[in-house]
Design a protein around this nucleic acid. Structure first.
Lengths: 226, 226
DNA sequence: CATTATTAATAGTAATACTTTCATGAACCT
DNA sequence: AGGTTCATGAAAGTATTACTATTAATAATG
């Protein structure tokens, strides 16, 4: 897998950036430090100015890669979901049992940070944290319809589709596969956030990670086999 | 119920505002037009300056009521959840069957806009829309821990607690009542958003409202009676 | 070596998110 | 009736944000 991953290049919608950050040194620095700073400061306090100071470069140089910080966030969320989709496909590909696929997909989605991250350029831990804390801001805007049309949320829709396809594979007649899939994927993110910041809203802390996978497996299984 | 509602005064945490907006004319105008404008413009484009122009008042007058727009949003979300909790308690109070309570609670949460809003000062439709589109931004910030400590999310935690208590009433041994409750409440909001803006993520459109209640009822029921 | 692309440095603009000060008028208190 | 308090409005000011534009320096390429 390491070998495969080292050659892995995730396909990111070209319209998200002005200039592909993976093609230059500065671009890669923008990704690394940008991820780090959004993680640390939160999206609201993060600015391109601060990133420029950190990278000892000019603000205008960063603007040549990304139109604004919102697009940078969208870049990261696409990167994250494309990565998880890759792992889901890779690890479920040769399995026969749809139930096994479900277990593995849920495990990856609930505990992505346990994945081997050799060959992944960006920190999976940081990506995971910013997706948990910031990703809803990427589509909860007035620009959602045009950005959806432009394909900015494809990676997120794709992973949801994968999960819903596994659900449908288990029970072809289940009519709410998409709703169940998206509710669980969103729920997995929220439960992690609640565990850390609003424990009254969850039964888990961030140590029982396998339990969190269990309950989402149960939610799906118990539903599709009514 | 109308009579009761006309006397209803929702308790909002005093630390959310600098000066209680419900006590003055300007304060009430800030709530009404603020809600309207956040709904129309979205939180990002909404500013106190724009609100001041709309109300033909000074920006500084608005700042005397709310520290910033973030607090105003928190005010609205508290108002909304306090209102729904009131309805849930009111409508389930005298019921014996926990299952009936569950059905009613879910129905209220999924279709709040069908509620009789005589006596509610603010538009339930607009509240519903901004809670769907903006409420996650109220707690997805770096200030979440201190604001949680200050009680800014009590109303949200309370309604989740109500739902989880109903779940526990149905099955005392079910260990994940809080996770199930918060996942469903968040899911109900997201499904409404997806139906409108990202239909690939849901099986519903915004016309089959009763179906949306059904699936969340099923998710809960099928789980607690494993 | 010439061309082109890339970046850094600087400056500038409009808007945002406030804060401060002060004047006015209404409400209320004795 | 007169003084005080309080809410509001008007105006001005500050720091930061979110950009855009211009130009010079540097590196890559052919």
């Amino acid at each position: 897998m390491d070998i495969l991953l080292s050659k892995l290049r995730l396909k990111i919608n070209q319209d998200i950036f002005l200039k592909d950050p993976e093609t230059t040194e500065l671009g890669n620095h923008i990704l690394e430090s940008g991820l780090e700073m959004i993680d640390q400061l939160g999206l609201e306090s993060f600015t391109f100015k601060k990133l420029a100071v950190q990278l000892q470069t000019a603000e205008s140089s960063i603007y040549r890669y990304f139109e604004n910080k919102h697009k940078l966030l969208i870049y990261f969320t696409n990167y994250y979901w494309a990565l998880l989709e890759y792992f889901v496909v890779f690890k479920t590909n040769n399995l026969i049992s749809a139930d096994d696929k479900l277990r593995i997909a849920i495990d990856i989605l609930c505990n992505p940070t346990q994945l081997n991250d050799e060959g992944i350029a960006l920190s999976l831990n940081k990506l995971n944290r910013i997706v948990i804390a910031e990703s809803s801001k990427s589509f909860m805007t007035k620009a959602v319809d045009s950005e959806n049309k432009a394909g900015f949320f494809e990676a997120y829709k794709n992973i949801t589709k994968r999960l819903s396809q596994i659900i449908t594979e288990i029970n072809t007649d289940y009519p709410y596969a998409k709703t169940l899939a998206s509710t669980c994927i969103e729920g997995m993110l929220h439960q992690q956030y609640f565990a850390q910041h609003m424990p009254a809203l969850t039964d888990f802390n961030n140590f029982d990670k396998s339990q969190r996978a269990d309950i989402f497996y149960q939610i799906i299984k118990n539903n599709i086999n009514h």
